[in-house]
């Protein structure tokens, strides 16, 4: 038996817990995304906003680009804890790892795009700024399937946990599946510039993103608890096997 098969695991789960408030602070607060700029703003009004808040947006996006690596580490944490429950093979944990790991791109690329927009907005044509800003949002919202894939795989994988008391509570698994599938409403985002389905609207921003943050927090906390439990069980010498 390995001496401590769960070494470093808590580092992975804590990465997720650490990144969540950092994301709210950098991407959300400093990045001027709470609330986000409406897609229905005219190019000139939009450019004026960006110029007025350029420093704050830049600091926010730089910070977000720095902390985003933690999402991959957290994904590895999900994958590793899932592996401790898998009886047949590691397909679902691998999908969860790739889904979460590739979501790093969804944080990194749009933030670079928004950083570019806030880099020297005063010398740029407002319509160029607007177009590039839009591009950031389409990448951010409409690449949701890769994230959904990881969330659903995680939900199914942990639901199949044969333990009497599963490592991940069933409600977190179902929440992950539900929130992941709910992202499908983002397909209506590029069709409108205003209203509930727009990128700053009630459904496609406030509800979807709040639900996502609840999923993230609930999963991160329970994943950490699961690691603590795995380590304790190992110390007491009664693993799954």
């Amino acid at each position: 038996m390995k001496k401590n098969p769960y070494r470093y695991y808590r580092f992975l789960t804590l990465a997720g817990i650490f990144m969540l408030p950092a994301t709210i602070f950098f991407w959300g607060v400093l990045g001027q995304n709470v609330p986000p700029y409406s897609a229905s703003l005219s190019a000139d009004a939009f450019a004026a906003e960006i110029i007025a808040n350029a420093s704050s947006i830049r600091i926010g996006m730089i910070g977000q680009l720095v902390v985003s690596f933690a999402y991959f580490l957290w994904g590895l944490g999900i994958c590793k804890v899932m592996e401790a429950t898998e009886e047949d093979n590691n397909v679902l944990s691998t999908i969860a790892l790739w889904g979460t790991g590739l979501t790093w791109i969804v944080f990194a690329l749009p933030c670079s795009v928004w950083l570019t927009v806030a880099y020297r907005p005063e010398v740029m044509d407002p319509r160029t700024l607007q177009m590039f800003f839009d591009f950031g949002w389409f990448f951010f919202d409409n690449s949701f399937t890769i994230t959904t894939m990881g969330m659903v795989a995680m939900g199914i994988g942990f639901l199949k946990d044969p333990r009497e008391v599963p490592l991940m509570p069933a409600w977190v698994c179902w929440l992950a599946i539900c929130v992941g599938i709910g992202f499908v409403l983002e397909v209506f985002m590029p069709l409108v510039t205003d209203g509930a389905f727009s990128r700053s609207g009630l459904i496609n921003y406030w509800i979807e993103f709040s639900a996502y943050f609840v999923y993230w927090m609930a999963t991160a906390i329970h994943l950490d608890k699961a690691v603590v439990r795995l380590q304790r069980e190992h110390a007491q010498g009664k693993g799954l096997a």
Binding site: A170, G195, I207, A211
Partner: peptide
């Protein structure tokens, strides 16, 4: 049946969508 938990989350989602529709 743990699927009840999903059904609750799903019903809440649809309830919110109904609400947003009626508010719009």
């Amino acid at each position: 049946q743990s699927i009840w938990i999903f059904l609750v989350a799903d019903s809440v989602s649809f309830g919110l969508l109904f609400l947003v529709f009626m508010v719009e």
